[in-house]
């Protein structure tokens, strides 16, 4: 893998840090008028998700990380692995629970997810920004209440629990924003 000098640093660049692939979030040059320049860099560790700040001497270089994002359709889980397929090549990839993380509760068959691969192995699964899921359990609530004051919890077919307005009932399909875990609307 190539090395990157601090001049090549920019948001989204993938580098190795402490043996873990990382993504650069922000890169700022700090340079006194007379003296050595430094780069203060905010980095997200891709496996642990931790965000940290690192300082480099300008001109230094770091090892790049062989990280790529690929869009794959979710197929099924065998309980140990979650299987995804490339819809063009039909190639399949299995992600373990660690890579899956929180994404598990948003997986809908055939939905296309972004799988982040490091040296060819999945390390992060990112569900689509919006998913549509059926409500399997929620309190009936009061008829005619459309104000949605506070709402109520509803359990979805994948096991995820989201707050929904009082008028939404069991059996209805709703749209959810997976980034915030918030109810967006009913799907007719």
């Amino acid at each position: 893998m190539a090395n990157y000098s601090t001049n090549e640093f920019k948001g989204g660049l993938k580098i190795m840090m402490d043996g873990e692939p990382c993504s650069i979030l922000e890169n700022e040059m700090v340079k006194p008028g007379k003296g050595q320049a430094f780069n203060r860099v905010r980095i997200r560790k891709l496996i642990s998700g931790k965000v940290l700040e690192k300082t480099f001497k300008s001109g230094d270089s770091v090892e790049g990380a062989d990280v790529m994002d690929t869009d794959l359709a979710y197929l099924y889980t065998d309980g140990e692995f979650w299987h995804f397929m490339n819809n063009d090549t039909f190639e399949q990839i299995a992600a373990d629970e660690k890579a899956l993380g929180e994404a598990g509760k948003w997986l809908v068959e055939n939905d296309v997810c972004t799988i982040t691969l490091w040296n060819g192995s999945p390390i992060v699964v990112t569900p689509p920004n919006f998913v549509e899921l059926e409500i399997t359990e929620t309190d009936p609530g009061l008829k005619g209440d459309t104000a949605g004051t506070g709402g109520k919890p509803a359990t979805l077919s994948t096991g995820a629990v989201v707050r929904v307005p009082l008028f939404v009932q069991i059996g209805e399909v709703i749209k959810v924003d997976t980034r915030s875990g918030e109810y967006v609307g009913r799907v007719k």
């Binding site: 700090v30 006194p32 003296g35 050595q36 430094f38 690192k54 300082t55 480099f56 001497k57 230094d60």
Partner: peptide, 22 residues
């Protein structure tokens, strides 16, 4: 927290500038 830079840095002024800036 600047071990990556500092542990092999032989130049006193570079170390001073690092600490002063940050």
């Amino acid at each position: 927290g600047f071990a990556d830079i500092a542990q092999h840095e032989p130049d006193k002024d570079t170390l001073l500038q690092l600490l002063f800036c940050m």
